[in-house]
């Protein structure tokens, strides 16, 4: 497996994505919206709560941070679906497969083309969010809230894992459908469990503490590995040429 060859494919696909304005803008808009919208809410809560806000503000900040994980799961589905369905529509997989590139390299390239822009956007948005929140709550807490261990686990462990999970599901789904829309619909199911976790957290259940986040991360890591072996089997050139529709 040559990473350079996979990266060639990823770079090519990312360039194609940039020309799809809808995908490109949603990639920017969602993380930006989360940062601006939620930091604005935090300002409002902090300002209206006065000094007592320090006691309940962290709960809000942490809950809002979780949205970056949801973003990491939802953003790559369209890109990954286009990466596969687009090639099917243009019938460009056969020439691609006839180049000296292994199936694994193509699969990795496709995954990277969805993973890299998504995580780039999510991390950029979260840095903005952390900066804005710190700036806004400095007066309330008397110290910086971010960075902390929670957000580190969310952004560096959980977000990449759910992003990979979402990418893999999208690739598997796209292999079986012929249009991007149905790929998205199926792949949309992937972040349902995340929404459930989020809602549970909002209802005051202590589900999103550090230990639990790491456990959830561990579960996703296992799922990612299991899906990876399924994906490599699905992404087999003979399978692609003779069975994919």
């Amino acid at each position: 497996m040559r990473f350079s060859q996979a990266w060639l494919i990823a770079r090519h696909d990312i360039r194609l994505i940039r020309s799809r304005k809808g995908i490109f803008y949603s990639l920017i808009a969602m993380p930006l919206g989360i940062s601006l919208g939620f930091s604005g809410l935090i300002y409002y809560i902090a300002a209206s709560g006065g000094s007592s806000a320090a006691s309940y503000l962290p709960q809000f900040i942490d809950a809002f941070s979780f949205w970056f994980v949801i973003g990491a799961a939802s953003l790559p589905t369209t890109i990954a679906a286009y990466g596969i369905v687009g090639e099917k529509v243009e019938k460009s997989l056969e020439p691609l497969l006839s180049t000296p590139t292994t199936d694994g390299e193509i699969l990795l390239g496709k995954a990277l083309s969805a993973f890299v822009p998504t995580m780039g956007a999510v991390w950029a948005g979260s840095v903005l969010y952390m900066g804005l929140v710190d700036w806004g709550v400095w007066g309330t807490f008397g110290h910086l809230y971010f960075p902390n261990l929670d957000i580190a686990i969310l952004l560096l462990v959980l977000a990449p894992l759910v992003c990979l999970y979402s990418v893999e599901v999208s690739i598997l789904v796209s292999a079986r459908v012929t249009d991007v829309r149905s790929a998205q619909q199926y792949a949309g199911l992937v972040f349902l469990p995340l929404i459930l976790l989020y809602v549970a957290g909002e209802l005051g259940k202590p589900v999103l503490n550090d230990t639990n986040l790491l456990i959830i991360g561990g579960v996703f890591a296992l799922i990612v590995l299991a899906l990876f072996s399924t994906a490599t089997k699905t992404f087999h050139r003979e399978e692609i040429l003779t069975r994919w529709k």
Partner: peptide, 14 residues
């Protein structure tokens, strides 16, 4: 694959 070239039945251009 490095040595040969293929024009498939469907052109498959981007």
């Amino acid at each position: 694959r490095a040595r040969i070239g293929l024009l498939p039945e469907n052109v498959g251009l981007y």
